[in-house]
Design a protein around this nucleic acid. Structure first.
Length: 528
RNA sequence: GGCCCCUUCGUCUAGUGGCCUAGGACUCCGGCUUUUCACGCCGGCAACAGGGGUUCGAGUCCCCUAGGGGUCACCA
């Protein structure tokens, strides 16, 4: 039975790189009919675990990455919080101590630090002297009499090699002699990550440890612990990390300011900001960050787009296939095809996946996705009244493939504002209306034509406009442009006939009239 | 700095010795379509880090160099 796990620490947010690691674990478990376990690494926790964990669990649920055991679902290996498993770690420490594989160490932090500095300035690699190691109770008592407090350190071998068979990288060798005597239990009695992680992996019967490559170099000490405790070793698979856009540095939540200098990243961020701001949300720098999953959920990305993109970030089936359903990716996934080198996160390509995922949605789904944004922005009632859905449907239908994320519905704010509150884009207004020769007269003239239409719809509006143009021997653009600006306030948008039809006859007339009234009267304005 | 990992178009990648004149995708650039903006369609630019081997033949195997990255906590 394959059992994989992802072990987030409750930090309050879900990092995009973490999601990918979790995804690969999940995929591997699903592929092999195994189980995926979520374990919470809160061994070093002073924070509020509950509130810091919830966003992470919500994020996974939203993405459709479900766990068979863990917080909120329980399981045979409970508890799944490391903070509640300290007795097990304590027993492991004692076993290691008894076997002579660990020792109580009474050095003070400054003393070890000093040794380290000596080694550093000498340019040699550092190894703890074990000068304050206590292997007997008598030694311990003597140190304690000096007021010293013990930590427990691993007594690492100082010769031989450690071979890590890695499913992605092949065999990787480390020299035991270059491994530090890691502290596994702090002076305050709490146990550290490496110990806890190994104990739990064994307790949970994890068969495959699939994690980011930054853990590769600390695998030897984990193997040492596992072997010392008599555990069967899991299979290891070290994934390359997710890198910054356009670089090979590890993607980090904290470097957002730097990433914003990248044009693609900035574009995504601004796109998101526009939506969030229209919704009246404050841009909380702690969560409104394209390195975090919440960002995407907030602006209307689809889970499948993110998962599909992340799947291809460091894995490929054949170099051709790009679109996968969940079932397809589960069937196709394999660790053998994980790429060894780090992959940089490309906001533009993620957006392309999102665009495709959005295009695959049917009208009903798109509307359902969009409604919450209109509500948040206060454009429609909550709950929506019965006319709303059909109205939004017509907008989305007319928009064709212009919406990339659900929040883009807010680009069509002009369908929801009062006629006398429509905001005009200054540049377009002056270019197409106030400074365009004859535009005002033309609008007035066209308003009459519009008013005369009896059966008002996109087709009849189009017929009327074409006739209007033909009668006056105008160019299409001469009419379309000022009308568009007059009724939408914007220079660009979807089909004008659809726009006129959706808005309805009276509202269009109101808007044209208002646009005319807003033209400043000046002597050199010959259109007045 | 020690140790470890990595290195094909700008980016994600295909490639497991001849099918490679190095393929696909995203981006970008042209063109078509067009009522604007998108979509769509057609076309284009663009890569094997460098040097040595091995071989009839190397992106593919070996070695070296260079570059990039990760890790070296009483963090996870």
């Amino acid at each position: 039975m394959v059992r994989t796990r992802f072990a987030p620490s409750p930090t309050g947010y879900l990092h995009i790189g973490g999601v990918r690691t979790a995804l690969f674990n999940w995929l591997y478990a699903r592929k092999h009919g195994g189980q995926f376990i979520l374990r919470i690494d809160d061994t070093d926790q002073n924070r509020n675990v509950d509130s810091a964990l919830q966003p992470i669990l919500d994020g996974f649920r939203w993405l459709g990455i479900d766990w068979d055991e863990g917080p909120e679902v329980g399981g045979d290996c409970a508890p799944y919080f490391q903070s509640q498993r300290s007795d097990q770690y304590q027993r492991a420490v004692e076993t290691l101590l008894e076997k002579g594989l660990a020792y109580r160490d009474y050095s003070r932090t400054e003393e070890v630090q000093a040794e380290r500095e000596v080694a550093q300035s000498a340019g040699t690699s550092y190894l703890y002297s074990r000068n304050w190691m206590a292997e007997t109770d008598a030694q311990a008592a003597a140190y304690e009499a000096e007021g010293r407090v013990a930590v427990v350190r691993l007594k690492m071998p100082r010769e031989g090699t450690c071979l890590i068979p890695d499913l992605i990288r092949g065999d990787v060798e480390f020299q035991w002699a270059s491994e530090q005597d890691m502290v596994i239990q702090k002076s305050n009695g709490s146990c550290l990550y490496h110990l806890a992680s190994v104990v739990d992996d064994a307790a949970f019967a994890i068969t495959h440890v699939i994690r980011a490559e930054e853990h590769l170099s600390n695998t030897p000490r984990q193997i040492f612990i596992a072997q010392g405790l008599g555990y069967d070793l899991p299979q290891y698979a070290h994934l390359p990390y997710v890198a910054e856009p356009g670089s090979k540095n590890k993607l980090s939540k904290r470097k957002i300011a730097k990433y914003l200098k990248n044009p693609d990243f900035l574009k995504l961020y601004e796109h998101g900001s526009r939506i969030a701001t229209t919704c009246g949300n404050e841009l909380d720098p702690e969560t409104f960050n394209p390195v975090l999953v919440d960002f995407y959920r907030d602006i209307g990305f689809l889970p499948n787009a993110i998962v599909n993109y992340l799947l291809l970030l460091g894995w490929s089936l054949d170099g051709e296939t790009e679109d996968f359903t969940r079932d397809e990716m589960i069937r196709a996934f394999s660790l053998e095809r994980v790429v060894k080198s780090p992959a940089s996160f490309d906001p533009t390509k993620l957006t392309a996946f999102q665009q495709r995922a959005m295009d695959q949605l049917d009208l009903k789904q798109k509307t359902a996705q969009s409604l919450p944004y209109l509500q948040q922005a206060g454009f429609i009632d909550t709950p929506p009244n019965c006319d709303t859905a059909p109205y939004v449907n017509s907008i989305i239908t007319a928009s064709e493939q212009r919406m990339t994320v659900a929040g883009d519905i807010l680009d069509y704010a002009h369908f929801f504002t009062d006629d006398n509150a429509l905001v005009y884009d200054d540049k377009s207004f002056s270019k197409r209306i106030s400074n365009a020769n004859g535009a005002v007269e033309l609008l007035r003239d066209f308003a009459n034509t519009l008013a005369a239409i009896e059966s008002y719809n996109a087709a009849s509006v189009e017929g009327a406009m074409r006739q209007f143009i033909a009668d006056r021997e105008l160019k299409f653009g001469q009419v379309v442009q000022p009308v568009r600006v007059a009724i939408t306030g914007k220079p660009a948008g979807f089909g004008l006939f659809d726009t006129l039809a959706i808005l309805g006859q009276q509202r269009c007339l109101n808007r044209i009239e208002r646009a005319i009234s807003l033209v400043p009267i000046s002597p050199d304005n010959d259109s007045a």
